[in-house]
Write a protein that binds this DNA or RNA. Structure first.
Lengths: 204, 204
DNA sequence: CTCCAAACTTGACGATGTAAACTTTACACA
DNA sequence: TGTGTAAAGTTTACATCGTCAAGTTTGGAG
């Protein structure tokens, strides 16, 4: 069958993907409170109860959107890494910039990702290593792990730092976010500490 | 401050405070999704539309609860500071422990505090200095600010680190939160980096 | 005592999530 | 080729939610 939806057809083609896409658009345009099963259905051009056949209630839809958002999150960081310098230090810096930029450009989606329960839907991603958004960060931390040390120490420090700054920045803790023309200026303390965390990459 | 006594109400003694208290209880017992105007009203023993006379819609109620939660947050940190050592390093460590502990013990309230728009309701608190939860943290950072330096640099680093760890911990990024008997064990990397951030207090 | 405004109630409306019953379509299978 | 069945989507219904409008109670000022 063709992937183009036939309006005469009772079936949609790929309603699940269409609903996720609609949800992300709604999130971007109208914020987290506007993300609704019925609105997603309407935007996808189906009846209000259609999503029930693809997601387990509104929580299921939110989880699926969060998962898709998590993947776009990862791609943003990969792109940032590729665009910057190629040293281990530059990699960490670029990825953290990508982290912040994604959140600033997709605040509602970012909030959704971190408000879907205990991230249960990413459990397999977390174990998949480099395939997940945090795998990219983990990869960037690896060169700075001293031989024999637990990599999670540095990972925890870097994740906490970049995520905390990003979340607080979105929350307006560092001043009204929309009044800040360049959020990278505020980002300097994080970058400087990042350098201190990394120190010298453990060569070998 | 709220004068509890003479706010002579006709039917209820102090419905506004009762609604906030009911909301916090609902949050603690049933989570963020269960926080509802009607449920708060029912628990406080009033009709479903009574809250409208004290808060501007559900957003107003959430904001008021967040504000009260923010104050309890601050008190938790103050208590932690008083219970620990009295050196500048011990102050920062105790406060960060209080930060994490409050979030672990009140996850829904913590989430609410950081999900109420751009924290507009705390604007005056932010400027009030030590009177706010972040004022306590700011105070603890002060001894480590080099003479003439911008205090916001170290503040940003410490806030981002402790808040990021706390938020990610609640989200389960470091593993299922309920499967972690002692969250302070995971906290070690943060503490070690905190020591590195602080370095030597700028004796003045 | 009268009267008013604040505090609260009642009733209604549209929007939402969800479940059940129904209809259409695709596809395996004979 | 024809048919049955299950998936996919629709329709209807219902409880709950936020919010508004109007009515009712209450305390106190004049």
């Amino acid at each position: 069958m063709v992937e183009v939806k036939d309006k005469k057809s009772h079936h949609h083609g790929d309603l699940r993907a269409a609903l996720i896409q609609s949800g992300i658009e709604i999130l971007t345009e109208s914020g987290l409170d506007s993300l609704t099963l019925r609105r997603c259905a309407a935007r996808a051009g189906v009846s209000h109860a259609a999503p029930a056949h693809h997601f387990d209630g509104v929580a299921g839809l939110r989880g699926a959107i969060a998962k898709e958002g998590f993947d776009r999150f990862r791609q943003t960081m990969l792109k940032a890494r590729a665009a910057g310098g190629q040293s281990p230090e530059a990699h960490i810096r670029s990825i953290c910039r990508g982290y912040l930029d994604f959140a600033v450009e997709n605040p509602a989606l970012f909030a959704l990702i971190f408000s879907c329960g205990p991230m249960a839907q990413f459990e397999e991603d977390m174990k998949a290593g480099d395939a997940s958004a945090y795998g990219v960060l983990r990869q960037a931390c690896a060169p700075f792990v001293p031989p024999g040390a637990d990599p999670r120490i540095i990972e925890t420090q870097v994740w906490s730092l970049i995520h905390g700054f990003t979340h607080l920045f979105l929350a307006g803790t560092f001043g009204p976010a929309n009044a800040t023309p360049d959020h990278h200026a505020l980002f300097a303390p994080v970058m400087s500490l990042l350098q201190k965390i990394g120190g010298e990459p453990a060569t070998g």
